[in-house]
């Protein structure tokens, strides 16, 4: 039984995997940042295919900003000229490949071995989803969401504190 949803899932899943693979295969820093952006956008489209419209649009929006920032930081710290960089920056390559393959095989095995029970067919529409998600956030999971807010504040303060340049007044 092949449905449109399955075909779209496979197409965009392959796109996500291909872009994700390109991240570590290109020799240009900006290209790998934008490949990661492509992978993240494909993940967002996967969310939309799986009917989680709000999360998909949010993912596409947030990653656009985040990966552009990543591109500018790559450029600042690596300084490769446009599409000319030739680098080989790997260590423990064989162990990494082994770890990646083993973990993938384990997860796929677990996915096949588990009995998933019945698959749900009824789900709320996008507008209803937005309402229910808001209710969830503002009622039952209020505390957790507030914690996320406080964590963001902590992260902002921490990153500014770490990135400040401390002038040593002794050496003048």
């Amino acid at each position: 039984m092949i449905s449109v949803q399955l075909i779209l899932l496979i197409i965009f899943g392959l796109a996500a995997i291909w872009f994700g693979w390109r991240v570590f295969m290109t020799s240009s820093m900006v290209r790998s940042a934008l490949s990661l952006l492509g992978s993240m956008v494909a993940i967002g489209i996967l969310f939309i295919i799986m009917e989680a419209e709000f999360l998909g649009v949010l993912q596409i929006m947030m990653m656009g900003t985040e990966m552009s920032i990543m591109a500018i930081f790559m450029m600042m710290y690596m300084m490769d000229p446009g599409g000319l960089g030739q680098m080989d920056m790997y260590h423990q390559k064989n162990i990494s490949i082994a770890a990646g393959v083993i973990v993938t095989v384990l997860i796929v095995g677990a996915a096949f071995a588990t009995d998933w029970g019945t698959i749900a067919t009824q789900f709320p529409g996008p507008h209803e989803q937005n309402r229910l998600l808001g209710m969830e956030i503002l009622k039952r999971s209020m505390m957790i969401f507030e914690t996320a807010g406080v964590t963001i504040l902590t992260g902002m303060i921490a990153s500014i504190a770490v990135a400040l340049s401390i002038k040593n007044s002794v050496e003048k």
């Binding site: 419209e53 709000f54 649009v57 949010l58 929006m61 996008p126 507008h127 937005n130």
Partner: peptide, 11 residues
């Protein structure tokens, strides 16, 4: 007519 049209503009 998207259910998340307002967010989609910015996205």
């Amino acid at each position: 007519d998207l259910g998340t049209g307002a967010l989609f503009i910015n996205a």
